[in-house]
């Protein structure tokens, strides 16, 4: 009997855990998108008013961008300072690729960043700010969509996990 109970508990827990994991991804995406927006907003200020060199600008953006986006921006600053003939765009793309496992962005989100990165540092202030603002607008739209999905799916996946676990127990009993 005890064995049966333990088995049943495990049967409920495993799918629940999967459900919670999927739900968590829905929860983290808007937070990460917001992080990138905070970082880019700092970059706008650094570029527009400070004319700060790129590595320093990336580093202060990293401080405002939260853990996930911040790690990527800081990594890009490190790569850029290491030299070796790479551009800021390449440093950022490499950093994003390196951290891909730990971010919850969709391919569409990454596309927004991939469109921005090659331009960064490559043109005058006016042009930089224009590109940064465009990326900010697109990220904000993506964040709104992500928040909407979160509202719809986050709780649903938790329920689905737990309920499918329970259903499995019922079927097996």
């Amino acid at each position: 009997m005890t064995l049966k109970l333990v088995g049943a508990a495990l049967t409920v827990l495993a799918p629940s855990w999967i459900g919670f994991q999927i739900a968590a991804r829905y929860g983290r995406r808007p937070v990460e998108l917001r992080g990138f927006q905070n970082g880019l907003a700092v970059l706008v200020t650094e570029v527009e008013y400070g004319a700060t060199p790129m590595p320093d600008a990336l580093r202060s953006a990293a401080r405002a961008a939260g853990p996930v986006a911040g790690a990527i921006l800081a990594d890009a600053a490190r790569r850029l300072e290491a030299g070796g003939g790479i551009t800021p765009g390449e440093a950022l793309s490499d950093a994003l690729a390196e951290h891909r496992g730990s971010v919850c962005l969709t391919p569409a989100d990454e596309e927004i960043l991939a469109a921005l990165f090659p331009v960064l540092g490559a043109s005058d202030r006016h042009d930089q700010v224009r590109h940064l603002r465009l990326a900010l607008d697109r990220l904000a739209a993506a964040e709104a969509e992500a928040a909407d999905e979160r509202r719809r799916y986050e709780r649903m996946y938790r329920y689905v996990g737990v309920l499918s676990g329970l259903a499995l127990v019922l079927i097996l009993m």
């Binding site: 570029v47 004319a51 700060t52 060199p53 790129m54 590595p55 600008a57 850029l80 003939g85 551009t87 800021p88 440093a91 540092g121 490559a122 043109s123 005058d124 202030r125 042009d127 930089q128």
Partner: peptide, 20 residues
């Protein structure tokens, strides 16, 4: 050309606007 230009501007063309 672009890479050399960017490297010479230390990845920050916007910071050298007057010079450019």
């Amino acid at each position: 050309l672009q890479r050399t230009f960017q490297l010479m501007a230390r990845g920050s063309v916007y910071a050298w606007e007057e010079e450019v």
